[in-house]
Design a protein around this nucleic acid. Structure first.
Lengths: 194, 194
DNA sequence: TTTGATTGTTACCTTTTGGTTACATACTTT
DNA sequence: AAAGTATGTAACCAAAAGGTAACAATCAAA
């Protein structure tokens, strides 16, 4: 028997990640974590207190919003800036299965961890809106609506894609589908900023 | 003791609806149904076989897509047709808490019941796309993308609104928020069909 | 009115999940 | 080396979930 708290904590957190990746946040329970990690359940309570706390720690050590650096200076004007932003949003969700699970979890739960995440997301969303609004001279409310239209649908379609291949004839599990969506977004901005 | 199969079946189905309305499809279990309906759990199995089957029956007797009658003839051209369609979509989700729960359920489950629903939804979606594409002369793929952008985000935001009040500064639990979104949609179509 | 099928009730079983108690083993400090 | 503390293990408990067998009451047909 080797004693190493640091290591077991990491084993636990690794198990959490594995479970989330496969079955989502809803599936993270004491028994599941012990089964996957091989660590005795008592230690989970000792080191993390509760599952909620464990999830909080997991999310804390993981920075989901790192990808989002929307502070760059646009070279090609608002139009290209807007396109770029939302393409980035798509790529972010594409590359992160855990983020997709997080978004799904948010839809059926309510706890301090989630509230924090919402706050952060709200901040970032507002930054984008602010930027686009200022650059385009458009009303903030309008920009917020258009922005929500895109990020909302992208979030939804990526969540859906985990269990379903087609939405409105778009192949949401293949690049082709997402390219079509990107083209749609670009088309829209071309018209809006004509 | 009164014997009346018809009645108890209805009691069970009523309980199912009540549970869904409050906690969603995920919460529909044998014990929950017996507790809410007052009907013995044995009868659930006898009359419906399983929970999956019960849910299938529930959904079958309920026609979620009744609201969607997109076959009307547009009077004011494509632009107004498009606006109208998606305003309808918003109103549909607004008025049906159960539909919101259904959409959420779809994100984390996969069973024959859900697959059927997807098929139906896909049909209706394609009808809209077909119609708009024909009327506008636009490429179907493009119309599909724009259409998905709207319905996807509306679905997402309504699901989110059950646990959260704000998204991108939009008040998704108040008419004001949804009006802003409608204005955004209208703005978009005004530009697209300029 | 008796027989048989249908409907309802009771009581039980198993599995899963969350959570704790008591004990054993290793490390660290004096 | 002894004592105390931190870490790990085993065993257990209660609650909740899904599921079934066996019996009781009612209804309908003969």
């Amino acid at each position: 028997m080797v004693k190493n708290r640091e290591l077991t904590e990491q084993k636990i957190l690794a198990a959490v990640e594995q479970i989330i990746e496969k079955d989502g946040f809803e599936a993270v329970g004491v028994n599941a974590v012990t089964a996957v990690s091989g660590v005795n359940k008592v230690l989970i309570y000792r080191y993390f207190g509760s599952i909620d706390n464990l999830l909080a720690k997991y999310i804390e050590q993981k920075d989901f919003w790192l990808v989002n650096d929307f502070t760059f200076i646009p070279e090609n004007g608002v139009k290209e800036f807007a396109k770029e932003i939302f393409h980035q949003y798509i790529n972010m969700l594409k590359s992160s299965p855990i983020l997709r699970k997080l978004y799904r979890w948010e839809l059926s739960s309510n706890n301090p961890v989630i509230e924090n995440i919402r706050k952060k997301r709200e901040e970032i969303g507002l930054q984008i809106i602010e930027a686009v609004s200022e650059m385009s001279g458009q009303d903030k409310k309008l920009v917020a609506a258009i922005s929500s239209l895109i990020t909302g649908s992208v979030s939804y379609l990526y969540m859906l894609s985990e269990n379903c291949d087609v939405y409105n004839s778009l192949l949401i599990n293949e690049d082709s589908g997402w390219n079509t969506l990107k083209e749609g977004i670009d088309f829209m901005f071309n018209k809006i900023f004509a």
